[in-house]
């Protein structure tokens, strides 16, 4: 029983990281229907900005995170302006290829500038405290990531549901042309979406660095893919869906490793994804929109 509870804790903290990345993924998708494959790499850039702000500037972890979020928000807006905006009216698959291009570009420009070796996050940035709850090992960083994921999701949900910007986002997501007619600046709204999404990725990146102690230029690929799967699992484009998908993914992987065989962890995780898609093709929280003829 203790082992099971421990696995739940493990799964939740792993899932929180996935959820954080998935939030940004799903948000961008929700507005412009683009699978932003560069999202994982923006997370990597965020992690590196955090790393340098900690080591070179000697800031504390909160300042580092804010710096990373601002830097990545700017980066996200630039990427959108340069690479995605010219493609807004062409096929989505062309935009997808551009996203792959941007992803490769971010990875290899980082390797070019900093080398491919990993960098170690300073331990002092986030001193680890372990809480022993009757044999259950819970770390302060576990609580930190889970709480941040939930809080950021709530803030995001608030922005989208109750602010004017959020309203604009929903309008753009529903019908771009109609949104323009209603006096909404589509360009501005999409820029804001990218800024928020990228800032979330940066937050996830810094947390990833804190959590797993190292950052490297290719670190975004696998978590990016897993988070994307999580977003689809929950129903891509739906904020609470990404959250639930992320946690579910984390729990699933943990349970397979803990009670099945870790050798088949990824295969089972992907298998469950396929099963869920087959039963409910729009993901767990997805709305079934009838096809318009």
């Amino acid at each position: 029983m203790l082992e099971f509870t421990q696995q739940i804790v493990n799964g939740l903290s792993l899932g929180a990281i996935y959820a954080l990345i998935a939030l940004g993924y799903t948000m961008v998708y929700g507005i412009i229907k683009l699978i932003n494959f560069a999202h994982g790499d923006i997370m990597m850039v965020g992690a590196f900005v955090g790393y340098f702000s900690l080591t070179l500037l000697g800031t504390n972890i909160m300042v580092a995170m804010v710096t990373a979020m601002i830097a990545c928000a700017v980066l996200g807006v630039i990427i959108e302006k340069v690479a995605y905006r010219p493609l807004r009216n062409s096929t989505r698959i062309a935009a997808l290829i551009t996203a792959i291009g941007v992803s490769l570009f971010l990875e290899y420009i980082t390797i070019f500038l900093l080398g491919p070796s990993q960098k170690v996050f300073p331990e002092s940035a986030f001193p680890i405290k372990a809480y022993d709850l009757a044999g259950l090992s819970v770390l302060n960083k576990d609580i930190f990531v889970v709480v941040s994921a939930v809080v950021l999701m709530l803030i995001l949900q608030y922005i989208i549901k109750w602010t004017k910007t959020g309203k604009a986002m929903r309008a753009v997501s529903l019908d771009q042309e109609a949104a323009v007619l209603m006096g909404i600046s589509v360009d501005k709204t999409i820029s804001i979406t990218f800024a928020i999404g990228s800032a979330l990725a940066a937050a996830a990146g810094v947390m990833y660095g804190v959590y797993y102690s190292t950052v490297n230029p290719l670190m975004g690929i696998i978590p990016g893919l897993k988070a994307f799967v999580a977003a689809v699992l929950g129903g891509i484009g739906i904020i609470p869906g990404a959250m639930v998908g992320g946690f579910l993914m984390g729990l699933l992987e943990t349970m397979v490793s803990g009670y099945g065989s870790s050798l088949y962890r990824d295969a089972v995780a992907f298998g469950v994804l396929i099963l869920i898609l087959l039963i409910k093709p729009t993901g767990l929280f997805g709305k079934d929109t009838g096809e318009k003829v």
Partner: peptide, 13 residues
């Protein structure tokens, strides 16, 4: 697998 950073599930086991 390469690039894994979370090992706690198997370690708990």
């Amino acid at each position: 697998v390469k690039d894994d950073r979370d090992f706690r599930a198997a370690l708990t086991k």
